[in-house]
Design a protein around this nucleic acid. Structure first.
Length: 287
DNA sequence: TAAAATGTTGGGTA
DNA sequence: ATACCCAACATTTT
């Protein structure tokens, strides 16, 4: 579900003890708290296993909350070695910190009891989400491409990444090993900002287009972050970025640059929205 | 009722 | 190896 801006927003709110979603009460930050017990009712989501989480996690203190790509990372205090709890929200995952006395909602599948009477709960209606307990972070996040908002994501880096790929750009932007954190919304928004057609082949971009794409990706993600992410429906009912979409879900609405009606096509089973005028396909270079 | 949904993975094919 | 397609995962919502 959530993409980079939404996951980053969740990480920030968890660190600060702010309600992740409207209607939920504030809570003390889980930072510095020790996990005292693990409850779960959907073992298939646990990696390497439900047993590993239940037996290993209690006693560990949460020392940091961060993000890599769309993964939330809880850094655990572990004198001997590094240890991390990672959560991928996939399509419908939500995180709440609530008083342990507060009844667990229907779709809560993991509850991490903390030493202050609160629980970190993973609510996941579609059950696509995953929870990992690992020593080596790279075992989970090692395959991810660069973080698009970091300094290291330079024009040079993007240029060399694109040069190796001959497929269409939309599919490539959704590939987490290419760039980490972009999903269906921000891929479409970035391509519109860059004025590049979603089916344009990656290795046919001119240098000015590569620069535009890099700026567009960063601008779309930053804009999303600025608005607290996008709330599409019940899945992530927080954020206002949905009020600023240029193309995502804007079928038949006028393009804000040229007034052409926004179109929707299917690319690799995913809805793809674009302006057929501003993002004109270059007949020599698109698939 | 059918279709679609902010995501990933694994299998098959060329 | 790369690209591309499809099914699968499981549930809710329109």
């Amino acid at each position: 579900m959530p993409e980079l801006p939404e996951v980053e927003t969740i990480a920030r709110k968890l660190r600060q003890g702010q309600a992740v979603e409207p209607g939920f009460p504030p809570y003390p930050t889980p930072l510095g708290r020790t996990v005292t017990a693990v409850w779960l009712d959907w073992p298939r989501a646990a990696r390497p296993s439900a047993d590993a989480l239940i037996h290993t996690l209690p006693g560990h203190r949460i020392d940091s909350i961060s993000r890599r790509g769309k993964y939330l990372i809880f850094g655990l205090h572990s004198p001997a070695s590094e240890r991390h709890l990672l959560i991928h929200l996939k399509m419908s995952g939500r995180l709440h910190v609530l008083d342990a006395d507060f009844p667990r909602e229907k779709h809560v599948h993991f509850a991490f009891s903390l030493d202050n009477g609160y629980e970190l709960r993973f609510n996941d209606a579609r059950k696509f989400g995953r929870v990992y307990l690992v020593d080596d972070l790279d075992a989970v996040t090692g395959h991810l491409g660069p973080e698009p908002l970091e300094e290291a994501f330079t024009l040079k880096v993007l240029r060399s990444l694109l040069a190796k790929k001959s497929g269409g750009l939309k599919a490539l932007l959704l590939d987490q090993s290419f760039i980490a954190g972009i999903g269906n919304i921000y891929a479409d928004e970035a391509l519109w900002r860059a004025r590049i057609h979603p089916l344009r082949r990656a290795n046919t971009l001119q240098d000015t287009e590569i620069a535009a794409l890099r700026r567009a990706i960063r601008a779309a993600l930053r804009d999303g972050l600025k608005h607290g992410g996008a709330a599409i429906d019940w899945v992530y009912p927080e954020g206002r970025y949905q009020d600023h979409f240029r193309v995502y879900g804007q079928v038949d609405k006028p393009c804000r640059r040229c007034k052409t009606r926004i179109e929707r096509i299917l690319v690799g089973q995913r809805s793809t929205h674009f302006c057929p005028t501003c993002q004109l396909p270059d007949v020599r270079h698109y698939s």
